[in-house]
Design a protein around this nucleic acid. Structure first.
Lengths: 237, 237
DNA sequence: CGGACCACTATTTTCGAAAATAATAGCGGT
DNA sequence: ACCGCTATTATTTTCGAAAATAGTGGTCCG
């Protein structure tokens, strides 16, 4: 314990054992992915300092990390901005996701053990529960978002490659930003529940070809929806 | 120009227009990839400060960026260290490289135009020239290293996806570190020149299946060599 | 009127000191 | 002697001031 820490520290500024920088990275990523910070928006230090209550250098560290993930655009000597969106980027991200996720799905189906099956089933169960509660605007519900992420994560978790899982996670975040972008304009959510159910069944029954085909359709149709309902937001460079 | 900058600034501390942090990131990456900094070695700020002549926060920013690339391991509240190596990691990196590079090779062969062909041919030409000069220890020669990287980069450059190219580049660096690890123990370089020539020819003649097969063999045999001649260095962690 | 140059302002980038945390050594009780 | 605890030291992490750089507007000359 530090020798000068006062006993009356009101509340922890951050999670125990984590650095402030890591915490800010987390929060900033969340804001960017959910479009709380709009694509292309400049990230000025004064503003961030006010919003996150951290100093220049700490913020800078967080921004650098997010730049490496492709969520932030670092313009040397001219600061940072939220990574811009574009049709081209959406296509690239979708394409890369299909390539990697399809491969990981195959590997997970081949390698997955009992724990994997349980994880897939239980994460889907939770997702469905949340959807029953509020079937209108799932993307607005932070709980749905987390459950949705966890279901897709569980599906491929047994693939055996931490390296590829990390890459997949980055691409997932970048794609999620596009989903949020179109969420306000999409008239009604399509039948995601049914798709998830079908993917789960194909995976558990070890039908790799079917599971892979469903996943690919799932990813591509999501991207198509974004292009359709948020196309007007994709023209700016 | 800053109002207090003295006229007698001896030499630029860094390349024009780039931040010091970006410069340090570059130099640190180089040192790690070439194993000038050994895998697992702790990266203490005093030492780095001395070696690179930058301050805490600037170094921290560079380390954070490299952590996102997988070359540095950040242990919260306990500093940074060079990412450790392991048999498992080597397998994962090799696997991921094959998956991605094979796909990019196909796309490049399908999309590549005249400029692409010229880039492939000319980068291979330079590579061969350098090999003629000093056929013994190519990995020791920084020029060979650059030319080798540029040839492989040129091969896939026409794939059309900046996203996948960035991922590929990261994996290339991580693999190159393993090559350096085994360079000191490998008795003689195998016939890389011939392999490169064959890959080039298959690519230029648009024989995708052959090119892809050669690339995969090329990547896997490199990894096998590392495991064979540097296996004793992979047991830690 | 236009456009190069300069002074001034806004903003980012870097630095080293200070705070927080982890690692280590020394001490006292059982 | 050995374990647990506290004081000390080593190291990382954070901060805000200061330096460097980019941006802006105004002025002077052709």
């Amino acid at each position: 314990m530090g020798r000068t820490m006062p006993d009356n520290a009101i509340r922890p500024r951050k999670e125990f054992g984590k650095t402030i920088a890591a915490d800010i990275t987390h929060r900033l990523r969340e804001e960017i992915v959910t479009c709380g910070l709009a694509p292309g928006e400049p990230l000025r230090f004064d503003v961030l300092r006010e919003r996150f209550g951290a100093s220049f250098t700490t913020l800078r560290e967080a921004l650098t990390a997010l730049a490496a993930e492709g969520l932030v655009d670092a313009q040397e000597q001219r600061g940072f901005r939220v990574a811009p969106v574009s049709r081209q980027d959406l296509v690239e991200v979708t394409d890369a996701r299909v390539l990697i996720e399809v491969e990981l799905m195959r590997r997970a189906i081949q390698k997955g053990d009992d724990d994997w099956e349980i994880a897939v089933i239980s994460t889907l169960h939770r997702l469905k529960r949340i959807e029953q509660r509020d079937p209108e605007h799932p993307l607005r519900d932070p709980e749905w978002k987390i459950a949705h992420r966890q279901f897709h994560q569980a599906l491929v978790s047994a693939c055996g490659s931490a390296t590829l899982l990390a890459i997949r996670a980055e691409l997932f975040d970048r794609a999620e930003r596009y989903r949020h972008l179109s969420a306000n304009f999409r008239p009604r959510p399509r039948d995601k529940a049914g798709e998830h159910q079908a993917i789960m069944q194909a995976a558990i029954s070890r039908n790799a070809d079917l599971a892979v085909q469903l996943i690919e359709t799932h990813i591509r149709s999501t991207a198509d929806n974004v292009a359709k309902y948020a196309g007007h937001l994709l023209e700016t460079e």
